[in-house]
Amino acid sequence: MNTLIVSPSPHVHGKDNTRRLMGDVIIALLPAVLVSIWFFGLSAIHLVCVSVLACVVFEYLIQKFLLKGKSTVGDLSAVVTGVLLALNLPVCSPWWLIVIGALVAIGIAKMTFGGLGQNLFNPALVARVVLLVSFPVLMTGTAFHAPETGYLFGNGDFASAALDATSGATPLGFVKEQLAKGVAMEEIMANPGLSYTQLLFANMGGSAGEFSAVVLILGFIYLLCRRVIKPWISLSILLTVFVFAGALYLGDSSKYLDPVFHVLNGGLLLGAFFMATDYVTSPMTTKGQVIFGIGIGVITVLIRTFGAYPEGVSFAILIMNSTVPLLNKFQPKRFAKEAQKK
């Protein structure tokens, strides 16, 4: 007989482990990555590879030489951060920009706090915002044009045509610009690059991951089916944005964008499905999650409509990230309270 193993109950464990959950997130992001590659070819591959590699290498080095702990690369969380970072950067980002992003994401936003599970803010988003503030030109507008060498393969023609249609800026940036010029909303929306079909299947402007709403929704459904995430955060964000933007639109449709456009645009789906639902930086209880989602939705629309930036999702999520410790104070509903003494 073997030497008996003794432990307190339970004696079995479920199938879930950190690596499997992270693996599922990567699988869910794959369609978005593939679509990106389909359109932009080598540039997209370059972006994703550099980003993932840099994130993994930074995590490995920091864990080994600074934190002096067991390597945590195996849990795949660095890979997820890498892919998310890539999807948050313009396709033609130079390699050094990506590496700086990875250093900020892993080095500052994650490992400084003690590694996986300890960070307060979503690493990929911190990196995106740092880059956005530090390199505004590279991160927006003109950077979406094809590099001088052209796309090495992929359907570049289609991409350029769409890019031209939106003057190289993101759709939201374009709309904001035009509104500032005093162009009426109806005129702006007549632009062929802004049609809903375009948005659903291949919205050209923006970061690699804002590309196509359909593939993001596919990934979200996969995560739900695998029970990796619960839908509350994502749904409450989308619903809030829709309702809030809808109210503004009903108020004055010549000045405000219609809600469907809001929902489908500017990385809201990417943010709602993959960034806001990040385990570490989102609340634990359903109640907290719904409040978290509503907060993100409101802040997003506020920034988009009244703020200086055309995009608000990243900031909204980061702002709400900081409220998570507070939202975690919401205790879940108890099974039953103490009986009242008669």
């Binding site: 030497t3 008996l4 193993i5 003794v6 432990s7 307190p8």
Partner: peptide
């Protein structure tokens, strides 16, 4: 000699509440 392999939380109190020890 160790006669069993203890596989739970590594505190003496946990082991003591479970059995005599490994």
């Amino acid at each position: 000699k160790k006669t069993t392999v203890y596989d739970g939380l590594a505190t003496c109190a946990t082991i003591a509440s479970l059995y005599g020890g490994d």
